[in-house]
Nucleic acid binder design. Structure first.
Lengths: 236, 236
DNA sequence: GTGCAGAAAATCGTATACAATTTTGCCGCC
DNA sequence: GGCGGCAAAATTGTATACGATTTTCTGCAC
């Protein structure tokens, strides 16, 4: 299977066309096929997807609202290059909201949900053992899906959307500053969290979640790089 | 004076033109000059601001990402008409994040910040005693500014942006479902929260914040209205 | 008078065109 | 050879144009 839902959801909001392009580019960014700092010219995007600059522009705009793309006036759009400070804020935000989301999710979780989570976990573990960049990419996504699914279960679509943004941006941060080969989350920690939820030990589950996020962040090297202008020169 | 800041801030991100239009419309929505359900046709918006449909469309798109405007394919954009369920989610999200924001803000608050908050409080109180719709609108904004300022003080720009969205959408919800004449927040509760922060009683401050949000929500009448289609007919 | 078809009007979706700005390359000058 | 400056190229900002879809209006049949 490709990658879960193919973007068949609500066909009744926003621009039809730009949506698909946005999703495609976002997926490419999250899966790290597009590196931070890469220039995304409107013409190129348009040609790539066989649409006019109008739609390409709309897609890039949308991505900039999500923080995945930064557009500079009269200069164009680039895959976001989050600063260390920005990275800290992203994880700070996750520490702030994820325990709350977890509690809400636990409050109305069903056996089906738990089965779903364990299913994700299994998939994640399978991908971890595999070699190759494709598996690595899928693993990144699967790892994020755990956090996203929790938000889904919580039933609050606003928090769900916010978490989608945070997870996507986290992927960018990890791509930039991650050190360990273990590309993303500690896999076992996800399982521990599910178990704690199942055992109805909410406080412990939240603690585990906080540690989990801390572990991800601990794997980052957030030292300030020299000048940003210089840096970009190398990225291009 | 026209309407506070004329939109002169960071001139170096996004589309220049559409930004101003977006801000102007958002302000109109938050201040309740535009009612939920009002149609915002691209042509009308464009004519109103003397720009082409292109920019008008971009502005409406941006607002739809913030949840203030809902665009329906091939039908147009409307000032969002949040459902009771959506309203509940908005306040649920606020209960979830605002205590955390408060803690972060308290962790690095300066005397200047406290002075600033008290200043806001004073302004808010002054507006509350005034009569007239203009004062009422200013009061709505001032009331939101308290929560926004806390997010600002927290130093996390991501949470700040999220809170901006939540406060703006809250204004829509209150406009739709609010009952009491006291249009927005309990003014005194803001003061209590500041005092608790000053006294370094964080737990109490968080409790106060939660109660405060609960009070706002308690003033809403979130009973389901009949059919949504019928409702819209009356809104148009 | 009511109801339904079909045309006209309005509005959105997308592409293209043109203006403005930035970037790049070239040439003369020091 | 290096440094400024001007012109060409590329790219974005905005407007206009055209096709598609929805809505509204009209008129005819019942």
């Amino acid at each position: 299977m490709k990658s879960a839902a193919k973007a068949q959801q609500a066909e009744d909001s926003a621009d039809t066309g730009a949506q698909q392009i946005r999703d495609a580019i976002r997926e490419a960014i999250v899966e790290r096929r597009l590196s931070p700092g890469t220039k995304l010219s409107e013409s190129d995007v348009g040609n790539l997807f066989n649409v006019s600059r109008t739609l390409a522009r709309a897609a890039l705009q949308a991505l900039s609202y999500e923080g995945l793309v930064s557009v500079e006036k009269n200069r164009g759009a680039f895959v976001a290059y989050p600063s260390p400070e920005e990275a800290r804020q992203i994880f700070s935000a996750r520490r702030l909201v994820e325990p709350g989301i977890l509690r809400e999710a636990a409050a109305q979780i069903t056996p089906d949900d738990i089965a779903h989570l364990r299913q994700l976990l299994l998939e994640e573990g399978r991908l971890m053992s595999e070699r190759g960049q494709t598996a690595r990419r899928a693993e990144i996504k699967a790892s994020g899906d755990f956090h996203l699914t929790l938000a889904l279960i919580s039933g609050n679509s606003i928090m769900q959307r916010f978490m989608e943004e945070l997870v996507a941006r986290s992927s960018l941060v990890i791509a930039l500053y991650g050190q360990s080969t273990a590309s993303s989350c500690g896999h076992s920690e996800h399982g521990d969290i599910i178990s704690a939820i199942e055992a109805n030990e909410l406080d412990r589950a939240c603690q585990l979640m906080l540690h989990h996020i801390a572990h991800i962040e601990a794997d980052l090297d957030l030292r300030e790089r020299k000048s940003l202008g210089l840096k970009e020169a190398f990225e291009l």
